[in-house]
C-alpha cells in the first residue's frame, strides 16, 4: 500500500515523508537480466530520491501471477509494474508493437522509435484508458531462434515442428505448418529433454545458459527472427504517479530511462560471455537458419503484423508509425552497418 511514515533523519530532507510503492513483475524472483533489471529500477528510484520513494519488488507469483501485472497496476492495488507489452495482446492487439514483433525493429531502433520517433506518445495513448503510464525500461537485445533437437534445412522442416514459441512468433510458426506449444519457462527444460517438443525459444545466451538448455538440446539456432530486440516496460498507475511531488515524478521517469539503457548494456556484455561458454565449455553447435526459411517466415510475419494493427483507429496509427519508422531505419541500417 501507499503508506506514509516519518522519514529517517538522514540527509537534508530530514522531515520529508517516505512514500512506499509496490512493484509487481512478470519475471520469476531474481531472474537474471529481466528480474534483476526490475530490481535495479526499484533501487535506482530509491537512490535518486534519497530514500523518499521506496519501491518494493515482487517476482511473478509472489504477489500475483505474471500475467496479472497489467490488471493489478491498472486497478491501483499496486503502483507499479515491470513486464513486456506483448503479454497484454489479449486486451490490446496493438500492444505487441511496444515490445517486439517478428522481423520488427532491433533494440537500437526500438529506442529510436519510442523515444524520438513518436512511439512513446502512441504507447501512452494506448494505455491511458487503463490508468496506466508506460515507459521503456529495458531491452534484451536480439534473441536467439531457439534450441532444437531437429535440424532445420528447409521450409519443409518447419511442418509439424513442435516448438515452444509464444505470442506472434508462435502464430507465424503455425501458419508455416508448425505446432506452437504453450509451455511455461520453468517447464521448457523437461519438455525438451523428454522429447515432448522438438524445439524451444527462450531468450538469448545469457538466460539460456543459466537455464541449462544445452543439456537438453543439440542445436542452438540464430537469428531470433521472432524477437529482434524486445523492449521491456515499466507501467505506473496514473493516480499514483500524479500524487507524487513533481520532482519524484521526474525521478521515476529518469530511473526508467537509466534502467532501459542499463539492461541493454548488461545483455550486450553477458550474451557474448555466455555464448562463448556454451560453445567452448559445453560444445553447443550454433547454427544459422537457412535464408530460404527466414525469407518464408518473414513473408508470413509481414501479413500477420499488419493484422495486429487493424483493430481500430489507434491501432492503425500505431502500425503506420511503426512501419514508417522501420522503412526509414532499414535504409539507414544498410548504410550504418556496412562497416
Amino acid at each position: 500500500g501507499q503508506k506514509q511514515e516519518c522519514g529517517d533523519s538522514a540527509g537534508a530532507s530530514a522531515q520529508q515523508e517516505t512514500i512506499k510503492w509496490n512493484m509487481v513483475t512478470t519475471w520469476p524472483p531474481g531472474f537474471q537480466g529481466l528480474g534483476t533489471g526490475a530490481e535495479h529500477l526499484a533501487s535506482l528510484i530509491g537512490e535518486l530520491s534519497n530514500g523518499r520513494l521506496k519501491v518494493k519488488v515482487f517476482g511473478a507469483g509472489e504477489l500475483v501471477p505474471a500475467l496479472q501485472v497489467f490488471d493489478e497496476v491498472s486497478s491501483g492495488s499496486v503502483q507499479m509494474g515491470h513486464g513486456a507489452a506483448y503479454y497484454w495482446k489479449g486486451k490490446l492487439p496493438a500492444a505487441s508493437f511496444f515490445s517486439s514483433v517478428p522481423f520488427g525493429l532491433n533494440a537500437q531502433e526500438m529506442n529510436g522509435w519510442l523515444l524520438k520517433g513518436g512511439g512513446l506518445e502512441l504507447w501512452q495513448e494506448l494505455y491511458a484508458p487503463f490508468n496506466l503510464v508506460p515507459m521503456p525500461a529495458g531491452n534484451t537485445d536480439v534473441q536467439m531462434a531457439g534450441w532444437f533437437n531437429k535440424e532445420i534445412n528447409s521450409i519443409d522442416d518447419l511442418k509439424g515442428l513442435k516448438m515452444r514459441i509464444p505470442g506472434l512468433g508462435g502464430e507465424v510458426l503455425k501458419r508455416a505448418g508448425g505446432n506452437p506449444e504453450l509451455i511455461a519457462g520453468g517447464e521448457i527444460f523437461s519438455a525438451l529433454e523428454l522429447g515432448r517438443i522438438d524445439a524451444a525459444e527462450f531468450v538469448g545466451p545469457y538466460n539460456d545458459l543459466a537455464f541449462g538448455f544445452y543439456k537438453a538440446a543439440k542445436y542452438y539456432y540464430y537469428p531470433g527472427w521472432q524477437e529482434p530486440g524486445t523492449t521491456l516496460e515499466a507501467i505506473v498507475n496514473k493516480q499514483a504517479l500524479e500524487s507524487l511531488p513533481q520532482d519524484l515524478q521526474e525521478i521515476v521517469k529518469t530511473a526508467c530511462l537509466i534502467a532501459n539503457l542499463d539492461m541493454l548494456a548488461e545483455y550486450t556484455e553477458k550474451n557474448n560471455q555466455a555464448l562463448n561458454i556454451l560453445v567452448e565449455k559445453h560444445g553447443v553447435q550454433v547454427k544459422r537458419l537457412p535464408q530460404e526459411v527466414l525469407d518464408h517466415l518473414e513473408s508470413i510475419s509481414e501479413k500477420l503484423v499488419e493484422e495486429q494493427g487493424q483493430a481500430n483507429e489507434l491501432s492503425k496509427r500505431i502500425y503506420a508509425s511503426y512501419k514508417d519508422f522501420k522503412q526509414k531505419a532499414n535504409a539507414w541500417k544498410v548504410v550504418s552497418q556496412s562497416l
Binding site: 524472483p29 531474481g30 520453468g186 517447464e187 523437461s190 529433454e193
Partner: peptide, 28 residues
C-alpha cells in the same frame, strides 16, 4: 519438484557463485 526446480535454479543464479546451473531434470 517442477516448481521447486524453477525457484532453486533462480536462487542458484541469484547467489552468483558461478556453479553449474540446476534444472528440473536434475531435481527429478
Amino acid at each position: 519438484l517442477v516448481l521447486l526446480g524453477d525457484v532453486i535454479a533462480s536462487a542458484n543464479r541469484d547467489a552468483g557463485i558461478g556453479g553449474d546451473p540446476v534444472s528440473v531434470g536434475d531435481l527429478f
